[in-house]
Each structure stands twice: as structure tokens, then as C-alpha cells.
Amino acid sequence: MTKREQKRRSITRNRNISPAGRLQLYVMMGIFVAILVTGFFFAARQHFASIDYGIRNSKLRKQLDDLETEKRRLLLAREVSVAPSQIKQAAKKFGIAGQDVEGLQTASLAKNPAGNPAAAKIADTAKSGPAYPIVNASFTAAASRPAKQEKPGKDDAPRPRVVTTAMVAAR
């Protein structure tokens, strides 16, 4: 058998595939292509989903950082507002603790309480305990009053706690 004959026979063999077998072949090919396309599709979807999750994740992380920062800022603001000097300032602003309630001065007030009812009151309060309750009471009163009633003067303006060089420049 010559080489040419051999080639011819092999071609003939291929041509002799039955239609059913060909269909099976096409179906198989179709299935494989579909699997491949589906795989690519899911891979692409996962890729974009991961990027999307990544973006969301970073946003949430930033949000968390921002909230953490805000929490610290509020904590700081709270501490500033409960600082004795600030309470004293607030009390002074509302005229509740105009006089200093410190021991030395309360002692001098206590000497002649009869002549000055307000002084006697302060002295009595001071006797019952340290100066804090007085200050606390004044702070509560200050908080319950509408803020608009009082216009803070220059000295009463709250001191910014955050470094303000940039703020000044920004203004």
C-alpha cells in the first residue's frame, strides 16, 4: 500500500463517522465550551465582586477609623467640658459661682455669715463637703439653661484644644 493510499483511507475513515456520533461530538464540544465560558464568567464575576468587596471593605475601614477618631474627639470634648476650670468658667458665666469657692475664701466668708446671706450659704455648703458639689450644681444649672440666654464674652470663649495654627491660616 502506497503512502497516498494510506492517506486516502484515513480520510475515508473520518468521513465514515455516523451522524449520531457527530452530534455527540458537537454536544460534547458544546458542553466543554459552555463549561469554559461559565468558568470564565464566574471567574470574572468573582474578580469584580472581590474588587467591589475590597472597595466596600476599605470604605468600612475608613468609616471605622473615622468613627474611632470621632469617638476620641468626643471623649476629649467631654473631658474638656468637665475640666474643673471649664466648669468654673461656666459657673461664673451664669453667676452661680461668682465668688471663688475655695477653702481660703470660704473660710473668710464663714467668719461673718449673718451679714451676708449668700456668703453664709456658700460657707454652709463648703462646711458639708469639698467644693466640688457646689461646682457640679452650678454646672447642672448651666446645662439646663438655654444657651442663647447668655452671650459669651471674649474671655469666656471656649479655647480650641486642637492645634490651631492651621485653623487660623484657614480662616
Binding site: T69, E70, R73, P160, V162, V163, T164, T165, A166, M167, A169, A170
Partner: peptide
């Protein structure tokens, strides 16, 4: 350009 800005200033900017 500007250093150590507080949140209020940042919002303003």
C-alpha cells in the same frame, strides 16, 4: 499646604 486641621476646618475646605 495646611497642617493639623480639625474636622470642622476640613469640612469647610
Amino acid at each position: 499646604i495646611l497642617k493639623k486641621l480639625d474636622e470642622e476646618t476640613v469640612q469647610k475646605i
